[in-house]
Amino acid sequence: MMKLRVKSTIENVDLLTEFVNEQLEGMDCSTRAMTQIDIALDELFSNICNYAYGGKIGHVTVYVEELEDEGAVRITLEDEGIPFDPLSHEDPDISLGLKDRTIGGLGIFMVKRTMDDVSYEYKDGLNMLTVVKAL
């Protein structure tokens, strides 16, 4: 499993994309899947940059793991920001308002549409958003 940790600023989306693409190329990923993964990463990463740290800059860690048995890749974005589940728009920490953390309706629509599995977990102070995509 490979990982990359970057600051949560929009400019780093290229760094992140290149890192992930590099891993994907090693996995014989189709161009189509790679494009879709890139889009999904953009949506999810920008969401974290805009909302996870309440206007401040924190860190985002991305994990890329090939699921060889399933011929798929699992990518997890992890941040230490405000607990928030962009999939259900439910806030695990009830004290925070909805508008503090959201993802664009279109963005999450595209992620949900293109990825094979999208799941969210809040654990040990970490927001973990995981997508699985067939290569």
Binding site: T35, D38, I39, D42, E43, S46, G104, L106, G107, M110
Partner: peptide, 10 residues
């Protein structure tokens, strides 16, 4: 163009 995300669509 390699890809376009929702921000681009907007």
């Amino acid at each position: 163009l390699a890809y376009i995300s929702s921000a681009g669509l907007r």
